[in-house]
């Protein structure tokens, strides 16, 4: 986060944050030591990984698991643990 911090004149009053969900700009992906990788052939699209991810970092499109949001995935490994067919591996980053 090397951008210059704003002055008191430039930020909204009252401490309000006006851009909902702008935490997406903060890339917690940098926290990882291990990264999840999926074996697409084994995946049954049960979406359990999506349901249990603490960081909303499983992408779902048309009812199918469409990949990981590596910008925000913290590599906690819960998805790999809960996957019923064990198609997710945690690989060293």
């Amino acid at each position: 986060m090397a951008e210059k911090k704003k002055t008191w004149k430039e930020i909204p009053i009252g401490g309000l944050i006006l851009k909902a969900g702008n935490a997406m700009e903060y890339k917690t992906g940098g926290w990882r030591t291990f990264r999840p990788e999926k074996n697409d052939k084994k995946c049954i699209n049960c979406l359990f990984c999506w349901m249990y991810c603490p960081d909303s970092s499983i992408k779902v499109e048309d009812g199918k698991m469409a990949g990981f949001d590596y910008d925000h995935c913290k590599g906690c490994g819960i998805c790999a643990q809960v996957c019923p067919v064990k198609c997710i591996d945690m690989k060293k980053e």
Binding site: K5, K6, T7, W8, I11, I13, G14, G15, L16, I17, L18, A20, G21
Partner: peptide, 20 residues
Amino acid sequence: NPVTYGPLDLQDYYFEHKRQ
């Protein structure tokens, strides 16, 4: 137009909010 009221300010922003 969702907004967040009452965030956590660390050392880098509290002063500016009080300044306001």
